[in-house]
Amino acid sequence: MWTLQDAKNQFSAVVDAALSGQPQEVTRRGKPAVVVLSSQDYHRLVADARDQRPSFADHLLSFPTEDVPRGQAMPRDVTF
Rank of each mutant, 00 (worst) to 15 (best):
1 M>Q: 08
2 W>L: 07
2 W>I: 01
3 T>E: 03
3 T>G: 09
4 L>N: 04
5 Q>S: 10
5 Q>N: 04
7 A>C: 05
9 N>V: 04
9 N>W: 07
10 Q>C: 04
10 Q>T: 02
11 F>D: 02
11 F>R: 03
13 A>R: 09
13 A>V: 05
13 A>G: 05
14 V>I: 05
15 V>T: 03
16 D>L: 13
17 A>H: 00
17 A>Q: 03
19 L>G: 01
20 S>M: 04
21 G>I: 05
22 Q>D: 03
25 E>V: 15
25 E>D: 09
26 V>Y: 04
26 V>R: 01
27 T>P: 11
28 R>V: 13
29 R>H: 14
29 R>A: 15
34 V>F: 14
36 V>G: 02
37 L>S: 04
37 L>E: 07
38 S>P: 02
39 S>P: 00
40 Q>D: 06
40 Q>T: 15
41 D>M: 14
41 D>N: 09
42 Y>D: 00
42 Y>I: 04
42 Y>S: 03
43 H>F: 12
46 V>F: 04
47 A>Q: 04
47 A>F: 02
49 A>E: 08
50 R>H: 08
51 D>M: 13
51 D>L: 14
52 Q>G: 10
52 Q>D: 14
52 Q>A: 15
54 P>Y: 11
55 S>Q: 05
56 F>Y: 12
58 D>M: 15
59 H>A: 13
60 L>F: 15
61 L>D: 14
61 L>W: 14
62 S>A: 15
65 T>D: 03
65 T>H: 13
69 P>T: 07
70 R>C: 09
72 Q>E: 10
72 Q>K: 14
72 Q>R: 14
73 A>S: 09
74 M>G: 02
74 M>W: 08
76 R>G: 06
77 D>N: 11
78 V>T: 12
78 V>Y: 08
